[in-house]
Design a protein around this nucleic acid. Sequence first.
RNA 1: GGACAAUUAGCUCAGUUGGUUAGAGCGUCCGGUUUACAUCCGGAAGGUCACAGGUUCGAAUCCUGUAUUGUCCACCA
Length: 896
Amino acid sequence: MSLSKAYTASEHEDVIYKQWEESGAFNPDSADPKAKPFSIAMPPPNATGTLHIGHTMMLVLQDLMIRYHRMIGDKTLWLPGTDHASIATQNKVEKLLAKEGLTRHQLGREQFIARVEAYVAESRTRIRTQIRKVGASCDWSRERYTLDKGLSRAVNEVFIKMYHDGLIYRDYRMVNWCPRCHSTLSDDEVKYKPETTQFYYFKFGPVIIGTARPETKFQDKTIVVHPNDPRYKDFIGKEFTTEWIEGPISAHVIADPIVDPEFGTGAMTITPAHSFEDFDLAKKYHRPIIKIINENGELTDQAGSFAGKNARESRTAIIEKLQAKGVVDHIDEDYRHNLSVCYRCDTPVEPLPSLQWFVNVNAPTHRGKKSLKELMRTAVESGRISFIPPRFEKTYFHWIDNLRDWCISRQIWFGHQMPVYYCKKDKGGCGETLVASEKPDICPKCKKETLVQDEDTFDTWFSSGLWTFSTLGWPDTAEEKAGKIKKTGDLAAFHPTSVMETGYDILFFWVARMILMSEYVLGEEPFRTVYLHGLVLDIEGKKMSKTKEETLIDPLDVIPKYGADALRASMLIGVTPGNDLRLNEVKIASYRNFVNKLWNIGRYIMEFSEKDSVTDTKQGLSTADAWIISRLNAVVDEVTTHIEQYRFSQAAETLRSYTWDELADWYVECAKVEGGKQPILFSILRAILALWHPFIPFVTEALYQRYRELAIPTLGDKTKQPQQLIVHPWPRVQKKYTNKKAEEDFSLIRDIIQAIRNARVENGISAGQKIQAVLYSPTRADLIRSHEPHLKRLAYLDFVTIIEKGDRPSNAVFLKFSDVEIYLPLGLMRVEEEKTKIAKQLDEIRTQIELLRVRLADAEFLAKAPKNIVKKEQERLADFQDKIAHLQEQQEKFTA
RNA sequence: GGACAAUUAGCUCAGUUGGUUAGAGCGUCCGGUUUACAUCCGGAAGGUCACAGGUUCGAAUCCUGUAUUGUCCACCA
């Protein structure tokens, strides 16, 4: 079967993926057990539906690293999975239910969870297919899900461990509450939206106070001012009665330096239950915490006639009422601040006091008495974990410094339920709180069957924080004795993982928490390198969103159209770590062309190159042969270094330039002239297919399989030819093929041809028209003579004269490289244009010469610059002077 | 308010520790179906590397400041 003229990705991709999967290549168990391990835990996509372009980004980068390491012979594991994503998934299903006119409360916890599980099962199936579409070579036999039994056990074990270590506590504290999700949110789960709103000034007893949230102020009975504020000095400690929303209220004035005299009127009231700062103040001065807003966002009985009404919606009515009482001093209509909203549903967050579970990040742990904060910090400070790009280390440290205790309980139904049991007093129990991995039948204290499990579930990041090791069989694969941990199985083989590759947007949510968990639980880092990629933006530089269909790139639309390889290339080339990527369809289409070009290079080599004379190689290599092989050697070296240094884009750029500019444009053309080049062409093809494979696995695999069918002997290459490219050894640098002489010789031939082509176009010679050339060179005539057929074909010449000495033609276009002079006697030569061109060149070179002369006359430069640089500059000057002499010579010929 | 990026050709972006005349892709212009590829080939035009200082023999690259854009963090009632 021959290859088609154009590469149609959709005809190959699914077939090839199936072959890979069935071959077992994805599973590290098929690698040499003694090989060096390389592992990546795939960031588990949320089980909320479908993959988007951001997921493709991570898959593509990770697959590149995984394929490279597999090819260099590492025991390579890429472990895939999905995250139950408690709030996100619950919200999604709630939205679906809403379409049926149902709420989760109507269904009840059990039925609701069943609905969510069904939805998740469907999502997971869909996600698996989508991951395959991108070409991700992950080990499906080790796929995990955060709600798997083993992983759920891991969550309980860690919680219990922390509890007994004194790191977990339950407290009535201010939390971020989302009235829509009906749950707490951690500090990181709160987003801020700039907003312009009203800021109200009220006459409150003797002072005027300002607020943006009058609906929280029903029971404000304390005024705070700055102790040194002269305006209020006399009021401090005084008590008074004032007219307020629901009638007169008595309040008194205290002083605290927390108040900023510059802000508003410099006087504020304390709302203990609905502001983080006020809560702390209220505790400091022993004020009662009175809840004005409940968990539904409604006003409580404390709001008198407003009780039961939505708090935010009541604001206008409250203001009207206060206005009627003449309490409103004035209203600032242009108050700009940030509104706190839920990161999952955009609903304004209500700070309110609530009884929740927290992780203490400052208390000493059993790991050398270091706090969790310190553990997180030292893992990076010590250099055990490094970031790419490194600047994110600063961001990470800054986050740690500002970290407060982590609220881990959520009032969400879907997730890991807290392993906490209460002996209920209202059932006749003793009120004991019990933390245990399994529910005990009876209360161990009062021996009654009165235990009820805590209804709350864990913050989803608590479980995903364990991802690098819970997926490798922890806790069964580790044993801790006297502070020493013994790992077994996959955990011993693959942890710490090698690289964590993810978007910088979840640095805090996830990356930091994985470091926390692994350092605490295992006393080792979860990964050695953190590679952070940027966001995928649309052409306008905005984050892609489903609502903007015109600029949205959906991998599932694009892959069938352009191929997964094209999409992969467009996300790998011209992209640098940590920087956002603007993506559009035009870019993907251009890489489709790029893939097709590679296909055709392969197709030419395998199906059109001359098949005879395998023996030719015995006669030695031609200049072109030696050159392309020498260059390949350099390219293998460069590409390998770039990949090892995580410079993927530069690796691809190096390869692209070799494949196009050297192999396709020059060597293949020379091979046509010289003939009988199959062994070399095949050898090079195989190497570049291997080098390209991590970037564009499908087209390279498709070509390789055809290659194997043909079984053409290659040049001195004894490396194994496995059935599939995915397990082909990575090309190695072979120093004996490095040939600087051939590189120099060939570049002279190339320069000559290019100069002739250029002169042809500039003199209006049509592409098909053959011309004559006279080449003069005292030292390189033999080399040129041996490339006469090349010159003829590639520069479109019908007659070439090559001489060492003697007369040169006059009235011809004249070009020069080192001692090679080229004369093109063109009948219709454009004399004026030639003259102008020469004059322009002379100008440019003279400027350069002037610069160089100044530099080389500079004593400081000569004294301080390295010798090789000085030497280079001297050579350049000589070169320029040489050139200028020839240009002048040429000029004279025209004027003659 | 603090921090971090980015600013290089019309567009999207590279440019590894400072060292030739700063590169690529796309786009533009001119020419072309030469038996792998028009999803192609040949040729060309196009940049005072945001701005102002500084360090250096030498700066797109290092330092300081400014401007613009973006992101993150904090947040005052």
